[in-house]
Design a protein around this nucleic acid. Structure first.
Lengths: 201, 201
DNA sequence: CAGCTGACAGATATTGAAATCTGTCAGCTG
DNA sequence: CAGCTGACAGATTTCAATATCTGTCAGCTG
């Protein structure tokens, strides 16, 4: 709204880009739109991001990182020795939080969710990093469970990857249309039960 | 090639449609093309299929049914009392066969596979029936395992659904690009191990 | 003189007129 | 007369002209 007297930073450009994407959608959001929203010429945007693709990738990374961070709280006191909740509950909570967060985003603002689907499809690398991040969180939960004698897992990394893949139906955005169908909650619980049963020592 | 003197049947139209889809792809395959391939006017095609969408749906169903049939052999002597292989091997074989079949189709003829991906996306109902069919096959294997005392499952239907969902990464065509990446084989084995461990009595 | 502007060339997207396709049906044909 | 044809209206797609956008850079400005 105001003529933005602050210095032009990468951060401010990213915020404006998110806003433009929200307003116009991924197909019609242009670098000129972003510059106009900031009250600068589009040449200035190119001073901070080499290409439009790089700008969109940065927006994608930011968004995926926010998701990772919101989950890291559940991985919690890993290695701090306080024990906390039992490993099984922790793992179940982590997946429930992931599923709930994704489902809420898809349900609350379908258009914005669709926009981010397009962004993730064109930025496979950023998604790969995000998945590696999530699998890392899972690995730490599994490792803690093995250490506590609650889980049996020869190789926590492999097990973490297996858990991630086996639950994709409930967090991969491509299944979003199916998340609202009746029975989804039951399906989720059934998969979790089966996986946790396979994990028990 | 030849002027096809045989009577015009739904079956012959479906075969010609598959051929036209193979040649022109899903975007450019027209009803006029199908009629031309058969040496008839396009009005005759509409005598057997009410709309173009109905014709494409029938082609989709045929294709999905062929996949189901190729797996039904593995469900095999369910209930015939001969025992056969142990339930765990049977289940593993079934999933291996499903994964191998999908991966072969995607790898051997990527264009045709992409064509059928488009068809399945526009025919959600047919896909739903196909999934129900596959889950039914799984349920029978699980039930046989429970009867033999090898598997623990309160509700074989629920368990079958869970097994299906947990393995989607390895048969849902949307993941096809990832099937050729290194480590996929290991990921598949890890998921299967975890699921079978969770299933054991 | 660091940071920004705006004109520019080539690439990409939009638009509207023309071509093709879908679905119908009255009538032809064997 | 059962089954097929082909002309037709409205819907959809194609294509080429036009407009917009991306990315660069010489020069302006505070």
């Amino acid at each position: 709204m105001a003529p933005t007297p602050q210095p032009l930073t990468a951060e401010r450009i990213l915020e404006a880009t998110e806003e433009v994407l929200r307003r116009h959608g991924p197909a019609k959001a242009t670098v000129v739109d972003v510059a106009r929203a900031l009250g600068v010429s589009h040449g200035s945007v190119y001073r901070h991001f080499r290409t439009k693709a790089a700008l969109r990738e940065a927006v994608t990374k930011r968004w995926l990182d926010r998701t990772s961070e919101s989950l890291s709280g559940i991985v919690a006191g890993d290695g701090n020795g306080d024990g906390g909740r039992d490993p099984e509950t922790r793992l179940r909570d982590w997946f429930s939080a992931l599923f709930a967060a994704k489902r809420r985003k898809a349900g609350d603002d379908p258009e914005l969710f669709a926009t981010y689907m397009v962004l993730t499809e064109e930025n496979g690398d950023a998604v790969g990093e995000h998945i590696a991040d999530l699998v890392g969180q899972l690995r730490r939960i599994v490792q803690a469970g093995v250490d506590a004698g609650a889980f049996a897992a020869d190789d926590p990394e492999t097990t973490a990857r297996a858990l991630f893949h086996a639950s994709r139906r409930f967090h991969d955005p491509r299944y979003a249309p199916e998340w609202e169908q009746p029975g989804t909650e039951d399906d989720f619980r059934a998969v979790m039960d089966l996986l946790l049963r396979g994990l028990r020592a």
